[in-house]
Design a protein around this nucleic acid. Structure first.
Length: 375
RNA sequence: CCUCCCAUAGCUCAUUGGUAGAGCAGGCGGUUGUAGCCCGCUGUGGCCCAGUUCGAUUCUGGGUGGGGGGACCA
């Protein structure tokens, strides 16, 4: 495959690539590209993780990249996920979470067998080099920078933090170097950690990242955007100037019920949640449904069929987001028709995950997780 | 180790020695071919233990949890 074609795949549906020219160089030199994306084990897998992240993984695989998922059990522990219980976190990580990501990859057309999984605590176990690398990273990063960067944990700046939380960013950066990852991948919310990784890359003496010629290099960071939550914004209408500030509030979050859809939600559940979503007629700036169409449906399916009753104009078919957006802006598509189509499409896309978790071990794991979250 | 402050609803907070409230969030219903806006309805609660009292969420003591300051250099 041509270099430009590979870059196009890697770049598809992303927010940014830090070091795109370096990536081009790596591909031209025929370097092996090692990818990783890390996840906190925080509960059920929603579409931001399942479809957004995994559709990128699929792109990377198609581009000939070695892909891996890092199950960040220590990070989840630090960040008080699943009650801050490390044993519980680890169990969910190697059970439900791993299964869920594999099923998600299947949903987007990827091959789960080719995806490598690494458990954080296993990487760290009896691993002097890891802790040396983490200290090395820390020695090249100021305290104030670490404090600013804990927003990557989904915490507001200035909130009270225990000291362990300050270890998190350095660990995340060390994860990259110790595993020799030259193309870390994350949501744009993880930008601060990735930038630290690039900033310290040339200064590290432990686990330096090198190319095949032995030259020290920086990791190329690929960031995808975060999909919107389905709920209404806390303020409407939104001024254009405040849209950017509100972005983090608007992202899909498990803490807001019905703002997100899980990969194994039932068909009725999907329909119900989509139907409840905020969706103004003709509104194209702040519109979660359009956002999902743009960033999930089209990247995965490359088309959207609108099934519409005859009295409203009959069926429509789109093969590009832009033309759909244009028609919606004109008012040619009613929100309800859009919602029904998105729901149908998601139901179709998520079928493999839904089936996986509706029987056997999958069902059991999901049930155990449910009980954990409630208890 | 010393000292001070805090603990009430999912969140932010108010109130009272006599059956506990607001805002926001949530849920339900109405209105719109969706949602939102608007209107109506609605749930849940006093960290734990002991004492004083007819009666404690309120007062006292202890505990637990959280936060600030101090404690070498001064």
């Amino acid at each position: 495959m041509e270099v430009e074609e590979r870059i196009k795949l890697i770049k598809n549906n992303t927010e940014e690539i830090l070091g795109e020219e370096e990536l081009r160089g790596m591909l031209e030199e025929g370097e092996t590209v090692n990818h990783y994306i890390g996840f906190e084990i925080s509960g059920k897998i929603h579409l931001g993780t399942g479809l957004m992240c995994m559709s990128k993984v699929k792109d990377f695989m198609d581009a000939g990249v070695n892909c891996s998922v890092f199950l960040a059990d220590y990070h989840s522990w630090i960040n008080d996920k699943l009650g801050g219980d490390l044993d519980r976190i680890r169990k969910v990580a190697v059970g439900y979470f791993k299964e869920g990501l594999k099923a998600s990859l299947k949903c987007v057309g990827g091959n789960p067998e080719k995806l490598k999984f690494v458990l954080g605590s296993e990487l760290y176990h009896n691993n002097d080099l890891y802790w040396q690398t983490m200290i090395d990273v820390s020695k090249h990063t100021s305290l104030s920078r670490i404090m600013r960067s804990i927003t990557i944990m989904g915490r507001k700046e200035g909130g009270s933090v225990d000291f362990a939380k300050l270890l998190y960013p350095s660990m995340q950066v060390a994860d990259i170097f110790v595993q020799g990852i030259n193309m870390p991948h994350a949501g744009i919310d993880q930008r601060k950690a990735e930038v630290i990784a690039r900033d310290v890359a040339m200064k590290l003496s432990f686990s330096p990242l090198v190319n095949s010629k032995g030259e020290q290099i920086k990791p190329v960071a690929v960031h995808h955007g975060l999909i919107m939550g389905l709920g209404k914004p806390s303020k409407w209408p939104i001024e254009k100037s405040e849209l950017k500030d509100m972005l983090s509030e608007l992202k899909m979050s498990k803490s807001k019920p019905d703002s997100c859809i899980f990969i194994h939600d039932s068909e009725d559940e999907i329909k119900r949640k989509i139907n409840k979503a905020f969706c103004m007629e003709k509104e194209i700036c702040y519109n979660p449904i359009l956002d999902w169409i743009k960033r999930l449906i089209f990247p995965i399916r490359s088309e959207l069929k609108i099934n519409r009753p005859e009295k409203f104009g009959g069926d429509l078919e789109y093969d590009s987001y832009d033309s759909l957006e244009k028609d919606f802006a004109k008012g040619d598509i009613h929100p309800m028709d859009l919602k029904n189509s998105v729901a149908d499409s998601l139901i179709e896309i998520l079928r493999p995950a839904r089936e996986h978790f509706s029987k056997g071990d999958g069902k059991k794991m999901l049930k155990e997780l449910d009980e954990m979250i409630v208890g």
